[in-house]
Design a protein around this nucleic acid. Structure first.
Lengths: 326, 326
DNA sequence: GTGAAAGCGCTAACAA
DNA sequence: TTGTTAGCGCTTTCAC
């Protein structure tokens, strides 16, 4: 089944059938009717490979995440999918892995499909990767971070500000002996560093830092708190680099008999759906992941459709959601 | 940058350059060297749209999930991605939504890209969708279920057996007043029905069933248990249709002062990573989601590469992982 | 509003 | 082992 067959059935030229499908307003009502009928009768599905090749518009957008198992980006990916689907674009999802070895191969696989845009989520890209991306000429949106040297467009927030804000928040709540439990990815590292710097600037002792492997798990959180209890009994507040980690900390705190928030304040990161419904309800840093996805979609579609993107960098901000745990 | 340019630079015909890239063993060492050099010098990335159009092999596999926010399929999707990547295929992920309205549009978008295979995960497809899939001639793998009438290939397990097995398990543990908290999707419904049937067959009273909207959340689990406590104080065991739901039940049970497992046994479904590390550790039904993904990849690659698939249906089974909560 | 011709970048089939 | 020719299915351009 090709456009040719459909056109023949409708008694028009292929190009006319093409117009009936893609730009119906350019075609007479009569032709539209005949073509639509031929399409439904034959069950014709346009070959987007051919279309993409001819038009250099694939209507495909690629997104790269470290792993889809990381719940932090789910909201972003989901809203991105939806926002793109509404505008007739399809999302292709690639997993780079936190390690980064696969990153270049993945990038090549992606660029080879000539997507109309690429959304990078939460990964640190190699210099080689940057170069390829730039050379490809494909619109790129980096997300979940604010870098001084974006490849192209950017929608994110400042991890440094998050770290600072959380330290200040805990300080304001009267906490004096802070700790951090963080996954060993680069962004979490920046939050941690800023958190520690802010804490010492406030006159607090330097926070204990427990680093765990990314992706973070509940178990890592439990183990980390157990460590803190053993090594540094005086901790009275923990900032976790993910809500899952925080759930682990909460769990272990209960097991160890450390009352939250009385004995220990806990604050997570990501504000996953379950955070509000835990007992005690988990305080967390909320990132509007959905907004990030929607803005990324807008960026790319605007660019593809020839609209000028005035401001290529958007700071989406964050907020600290205060609940029982801190 | 096209293959033409690379070929010219290497001093060979385009088809020779193509062979150097795709089937290097068909080409002299000398040619291979020259072409490789030209590729690295130019940063050439093959256009897979063109390649796919010419060869009718896109090296793209599409997977459809209800939503990537549902953690149940993550393991499957992840192993699928990896198994495919190893063999040089790329995964395209589509979200159908639990509602199902978008399903046909999604299918069209997918078929239009002429993927080498389609993996269907946890969705119920319309008759229209089935027809299109069949008509497209693309290899299809349905997963996470066993249906008597598969579209093509199938790797899953019996939801009915799961329901039965869990009922028997709880009965064997001495539980007599069972309940179910389940998301309102079709598969969970089948587990629930089988669970109830098995319970009554064992001489137990008909289990209470609390249905919650899919996708399931921790909050739904809490609310459901609160309902059970209010309406049916005599419940002594709950089978939840997801681990998140079970976490909610566990949480609410603690709040309500129902000791787990003494007063209430709780068993989840999916055996997510966190299940083992909760307190109390959550018993759950384990599905080898990773195996499902790997088998699906094998199915598709075998088919694409012309190997005959002898047994088109694989029952991957399940197991009940016994931990503290039940 | 409709169509003819040409070509997007690549590979299958055949030939040398 | 290498090359020539033709064409995958569609859309662009230009003409009517």
């Amino acid at each position: 089944m090709t456009l040719h067959d459909v056109a023949k059935l409708a008694g028009v030229a292929p190009i006319t059938a093409s117009r009936a499908l893609n730009t119906p307003q350019q075609v007479s009502a009569e032709v539209l009717r005949k073509v639509s009928e031929a399409v439904t009768r034959t069950g014709y599905v346009p070959n987007r490979l051919a279309g993409g090749l001819a038009s250099t518009r694939s209507r495909l957008v690629a997104a790269v995440v470290p792993t889809i198992a990381g719940p932090v980006f789910l909201e972003t990916v989901q809203s991105l999918t939806e926002a793109l689907a509404e505008r007739g674009y399809q999302l292709m999802l690639g997993q780079a892995g936190y390690a980064g070895g696969r990153e270049d191969a993945l990038l090549e696989a992606i660029i080879g499909r000539r997507p109309d845009g690429i959304v990078l989520t939460g990964i640190l890209h190699s210099a080689e990767g940057r170069r390829r991306l730039l050379a490809s000429g494909i619109p790129v949106v980096e997300t979940w971070d604010l870098t001084p040297t974006p490849i192209d467009m950017l929608v994110g927030f400042s991890h440094v500000e998050v770290g600072r804000a959380v330290a200040r928040h805990l300080h304001a709540k009267g906490r004096r002996r802070l700790a951090v439990v963080a996954g060993d990815d680069e962004r979490a590292g920046r939050r941690t560093d800023a958190f520690c710097a802010a804490a010492t600037a406030l006159g607090l002792r330097r926070p204990r830092v427990v680093t765990v492997p990314a992706p973070t798990t509940l178990k890592s959180g439990r183990d980390a708190l157990a460590t803190l209890v053993r090594e540094a009994g005086e901790t009275d507040a923990v900032f976790c680099s993910s809500d899952l980690l925080a759930l682990g900390v909460l769990t272990e705190a209960r097991v160890q008999g450390w009352a939250v928030p009385q004995r220990l304040a806990v604050i997570g990161f990501g504000d996953l759906e379950f955070a509000a419904d835990l007992d005690p309800a988990l305080s967390s840093v909320r990132i509007q992941g959905g907004d990030i996805g929607r803005q990324a979609a807008r960026f790319i579609v605007d660019r593809v459709e020839g609209r000028e993107v005035a401001e290529k960098v958007v700071d989406i901000g964050f907020s600290i959601v205060e609940r029982q745990s801190a």
